[in-house]
Amino acid sequence: MPEGGLAIQTRGLTKVFGRQTVVNGIDLSVPRGSVFGFLGPNGSGKTTSIRMLLGLASATSGEITVLGQQMPKRAGTVLPRVGALIEGPGFYPFLSGTANLRRLDSADRFARTSTRTARVGEALERVGLTHAAGKKVRAYSLGMKQRLGIANALLTPRDLIVLDEPTNGLDPQGTREVRNLVRSLTAEGTTVFVSSHLLAEIEQMCTHAAVMRAGNLVAQGSLDELRQAGQSRVRVLTPDPGPARRVLAELGLAVEVDADGRETHPLDGESVTAPLDAGNWVDGPIDAGTRTDRPLDPERIVAALVAAGVRVRGFAVERASLEDLFVALTGEGFDVAQ
């Protein structure tokens, strides 16, 4: 296997249910060794995509490569190297946690029987379920079942682990444990593909992310790349908002009208903002010799404002947070994407 290749790659992956296109031609590229966040509101098609990646559902069209091999054609050789939690845990309520894991492990023909007891015990310990190992799953809480589901994904050493909404039903302590677990997995060289509808979760544990919206992949890349893709804006605090707006407009910036209604200190005057395309200016080492003048470099903007007699009491270039980006990409509020 080539180092630094892709753990998952899809091309034009599409799923149609009846007349509804649930996944619409997505091109995922998940680098090996990354913790890849698959982000999107409820109903945006994350679970459906995962089902197709794992060969549970057939794609309406498109191609899937997992760990360098075609899916679902090579499922028999790919899947033993993949651990998964898909849309919540599924267990036999009348069996104990241990018996459930043994059952699923024995379904994997590549899993060694001789090490089964040890591996099951180890997986249970990793998710903190050792004390409840002998209890019937019927008596487990939702969070405990979720942990057992994660333990199932860890039964054998895996090259790829897919976790669909792993922190659902977990308390803050459990969420933190999942984060640490994911970190320890990557330390072992495992690629982790984790879906979530919560940005904060992705931001805290992922190196890469993709954003889904209503079946479309609307952004993808390393977290840094995504941050850069976000809109930056200049913010001027001034008691002379009128002239300030005029100067910015003359520079070719699209001044926003009460963009975010942010409260300002009375002495600072008003806040005037305008989006600033990162492409219009470069930051980094400023080398007077090689650097061409760009009219929209922040310092030029300040100079123009001051030259026009605007009393500048505050000036900032604000980079978009991932949250701004997420909201911009997927819409705000609790709407379930249709």
Partner: peptide, 8 residues
């Protein structure tokens, strides 16, 4: 689904 991705 877990049996099938085990895989069986």
């Amino acid at each position: 689904r877990y049996l099938l991705v085990s895989p069986v």
